[in-house]
Simulated assay, not measured.
Amino acid sequence: MTDVFEEHRRLLFGTAYRMLGSVADAEDIVQDAWLKWNQADRSAVDHPKAYLVRTVTNLSLNRLKSAQVAREAYVGPWLPEPILTSPDVAEEAELADTVSMAVLVVLETLTPTERAVFMLREVFGYSHAEIAEVIGKSEATVRQQAHRAREHVQARRPRFTADAAEQREIAEKFREACAGGDLNGVLALLAPDVTTWSDGGGVVTAARRPLHGPDHVARWLLGVLAKPEVQGVEMHIADINGEAGLLLTLGGTNVGAINFDASPDGRIAAIRMALNPNKLRGLQP
Score class of each variant (00 low, 15 high):
10 R>C: 06
126 Y>C: 04
20 L>D: 05
81 E>G: 04
223 G>F: 01
238 A>V: 07
284 Q>G: 13
107 L>H: 05
166 E>S: 14
108 E>C: 05
146 A>R: 07
53 V>I: 13
104 L>S: 04
89 V>N: 10
89 V>I: 13
238 A>W: 01
41 D>T: 09
251 G>E: 08
257 A>R: 00
81 E>C: 01
279 K>P: 04
203 V>R: 14
81 E>V: 01
38 N>H: 11
119 M>A: 11
41 D>F: 02
81 E>Q: 12
272 R>N: 09
83 I>Y: 04
190 L>K: 00
221 L>Y: 04
226 A>L: 07
4 V>S: 11
125 G>D: 07
56 V>D: 01
167 Q>V: 03
89 V>F: 11
118 F>N: 08
176 E>S: 14
139 E>L: 05
141 T>E: 15
80 P>M: 05
189 L>G: 05
149 A>I: 00
116 A>E: 02
283 L>E: 09
184 N>V: 06
255 V>T: 12
173 K>E: 13
11 L>D: 14
142 V>P: 03
101 M>I: 09
6 E>W: 11
271 I>P: 00
5 F>W: 00
241 N>C: 09
118 F>T: 03
85 T>N: 01
128 H>N: 14
206 A>W: 01
70 A>E: 15
25 D>H: 09
96 A>N: 03
261 D>K: 07
214 P>L: 02
168 R>H: 06
47 H>M: 08
112 P>H: 06
160 F>Y: 15
166 E>D: 15
255 V>F: 03
48 P>H: 03
155 A>K: 10
51 Y>T: 02
85 T>S: 15
194 V>D: 00
105 V>M: 15
196 T>I: 00
244 A>H: 12
46 D>N: 13
